[in-house]
């Protein structure tokens, strides 16, 4: 009986591990290819490990193109991701509290609009937004990518609302009896309690902004402004690329910030995703 259980358990792990391997094989392949030279990538495409670890690709890749190195692109990505994330998370927290703990006229309508914009394809607003920002003279600056984030982002508003709903309303009521206004309730009671949701939103926002491609593609025309995503695509352009190893080395580097964040904040991320899905 015990043996059978053991065999079953081994079998289970075997299946799960095999499948895990299939899942991350592409990523492993990319990682190891960044140490291979071109001919090795092509001729031994089926061999995962490089014949020898060759760090030269990273040096070549880091040089970037046309005198602009990847340090510039990474800096741009960090600026865009961090500032945008701050704006999105803070403003979303305010709005979420407004929706979840205040009864006001027209709330239902506004909330409906908010949910509807969650379902709104970006393409619908893309062209007029472009025309508008262009008129502001914001093209070729980070502004079109950063400013809108300070006005709340429906997905995060929704996420935080879900979280606030889990906080007992008795806390608010007790504070109210103590003479707290809606505003101080938010800053003194709710804000500290929703930290996990804020962390989740921060992580997701950072990851999405880091990977954003269409926005920078439209708004940023100067290589010195490119974030990593756009630079990678220019770097990997089929009509220009000749050094796949260097390309993969930069592609590998580009996913490292996301990976690190995931490893350190796994718990929050998973809990956050679960929260939005479960109670939706």
């Amino acid at each position: 009986m015990k043996d059978r259980k053991k065999i079953k358990s081994i079998l289970y792990h075997l299946i799960v591990i095999t499948f895990s391997y299939v899942m991350i094989y592409p990523l492993l392949w990319m990682f190891f290819s960044s140490f291979k030279d071109n001919s090795e990538i092509f001729r031994y495409a089926h061999i995962l490990l490089p014949q020898r670890f060759n760090f030269e690709n990273f040096l070549i890749g880091w040089r970037g193109f046309g005198g602009i190195s990847f340090s510039v692109f990474f800096r741009n990505s960090f600026i865009l991701s961090i500032i945008g994330t701050l704006g999105a998370v803070l403003s979303s927290a305010l709005v979420a509290y407004g929706f979840s703990r205040n009864k006001f006229k027209g709330k239902k309508i506004w909330f409906g609009f908010m949910i509807a914009t969650m379902l709104l394809p970006y393409q619908v607003v893309m062209i007029p937004q472009y025309i508008m920002f262009n008129r502001f003279g914001w093209v070729n600056t980070f502004k079109p990518l950063l400013v809108p984030s300070f006005f709340g982002q429906p997905f995060f508003i929704f996420l935080i609302i879900q979280f606030i709903r889990g906080i007992p309303i008795e806390l608010d009521e007790a504070a109210k009896i103590d003479g707290c206004s809606k505003y101080s309730i938010f800053f003194k009671i709710i804000l500290p309690l929703i930290t996990p949701a804020l962390i989740t939103a921060t992580i997701l926002s950072f990851l999405w902004r880091w990977d954003d491609f269409l926005g920078p593609l439209i708004y940023l025309n100067r290589p010195t402004l490119y974030p990593v995503s756009l630079a990678l695509r220019m770097f990997a352009d089929p009509s220009a690329i000749s050094n796949w190893g260097a390309m993969f080395s930069m592609a590998t580097l580009s996913i490292i910030p996301g990976l690190l964040i995931f490893i350190f904040f796994q718990r929050y991320l998973i809990e956050g995703i679960i929260a939005t899905g479960i109670k939706g």
Partner: peptide
Amino acid sequence: SGYVFILPW
């Protein structure tokens, strides 16, 4: 207060 909070959005 409701409107103040959702004003940004």
